[in-house]
Design a protein around this nucleic acid. Structure first.
Lengths: 232, 232
DNA sequence: CCAATAGTGTCTCTAAGACAGTATGAC
DNA sequence: GTCATACTGTCTTAGAGACACTATTGG
């Protein structure tokens, strides 16, 4: 079987990188969104992203980190590929491809910087439905949200929504917000011990009741994964 | 902070799609490889893939399916994005990006077609180390293999390595080859029942002992996922 | 004292692992 | 009969869920 199509059809599609940066703020799952300054979709909210710069970027992971740093002034502590979204209709300029990453950070590490910029904001994921969002970014966010939710059921990734020092209660809360159901504190403690990822520091902080033990990640730890999901 | 870099740096990277098509054949995990007819890496084995054709492809999933059909003459029953590999050094022609898919099929569905083509072959994954492989395709294959292994621990995806009609013993064998350890037949049966994905047909086939019940997938089923991994 | 959150002890529950026992085919 | 594989029954095990209990803070 021969291939009768024109060699000129092989023009490279438009290639971009986008990021879904999550955090938990005020007990809500939030996403970093950028008000678009240019067409297409000028004035709408979109995901922070852009083009690869082959002079600066060794890989698209670098592109993702660089774009996030431009908007937040930090290097995010957790970044992972989500998937590629592509198609003829997702961008009015023609067939386009975007490699999407999802990332986590504590809101504290970027809040002071964000206050200086009006067109970059944390937006509550539940409020996104009623906002004008560019491209297929609502679909992308839904996909990222689902992936994060799954991951939170069997891994310790949600810690990266917290600052370096945190308590078990805070970690429990963050996990519960991500997965949308409560978990047993005891189950979390068992995982914390089994994971061997954390160490206590000689400090306790206020929590509305008894003082809470402060934890931090050990250095250069691998994120623990478990053989079972949290269930209910 | 302004961005002082040259606008011309934003030339689109070279974008391709590649596939890691797995099957189980002769009790071995195999991958479909293509002997490259052109430079770069002419004469080496590479993954089946190529450029997006924006006239033919609605999305890169279509590109992946189209490329696989060119080599196998079938539409693979399972296809999923793996991840994107990118970088300056992975292709001698410059910064390149490839969106990689992994896929499964029964070897029976393509064997007769493959016999007519010398430069497309199933290659045992264990023999790949001693073969000349193009680009970073060894790394890609390793990544795909790891992902398939993980997936086989908590989902029914391995069925797609089998023909439409199959026995529990065959499914058990396929899973064991993928995950590299034995599982309890009983555990698999429990999952088959819980998944509700399969139905028996009024047929039994030889197996070296007692005749085995023949199963098939129900129509339009979702692939079942489980809350626990097979362990050991 | 009470309210609230931190942390422990321990029983239950669920699904996988182990494995013995039976069933049925080929020879 | 033996051997091999199919299939079932049922006990054990590991880790999550439930939940009562104690501990420590602020008011």
């Amino acid at each position: 079987m021969s291939q009768p199509y024109d060699i000129n059809a092989f023009d490279n599609p438009l290639f971009t990188v986008d990021n879904v940066l999550f955090t938990i703020k005020e007990k809500r799952l939030m996403i970093l969104m950028v008000k678009r300054a240019n067409d297409p979709y000028k004035g709408r909210w979109g995901l922070p992203g852009g083009f690869v710069d082959t002079q600066l970027d060794d890989s698209i992971e670098m592109t993702a980190l660089r774009k996030l740093k431009e908007k937040t002034n930090i290097s995010v502590p957790y970044l992972e590929q989500l998937e590629v979204f592509s198609g003829l209709n997702r961008d009015p300029r023609g067939f386009s491809v975007t490699a999407v990453f999802y990332a986590l950070t504590s809101h504290q590490s970027v809040s002071s910087y964000l206050e200086t910029i009006a067109d970059v904001q944390w937006i509550d994921i539940q409020e996104l439905n009623s906002l004008p969002v560019a491209f297929d970014h609502k679909l992308i966010i839904k996909t990222a949200r689902d992936r994060l939710e799954q991951k939170a059921l069997y891994s310790m990734v949600p810690v990266y929504c917290l600052p370096e020092l945190f308590t078990i209660g805070q970690l429990k809360s963050v996990i519960e917000i991500i997965i949308g159901k409560t978990i047993q504190r005891k189950s979390l403690i068992r995982r914390i011990e089994a994971s061997n990822m954390f160490e206590t520091i000689d400090q306790k902080i206020k929590s509305g009741g008894r003082l809470a033990q402060v934890y931090q990640l050990k250095e250069n730890v691998e994120i623990a994964h478990f053989e079972r999901n949290f269930s209910n």
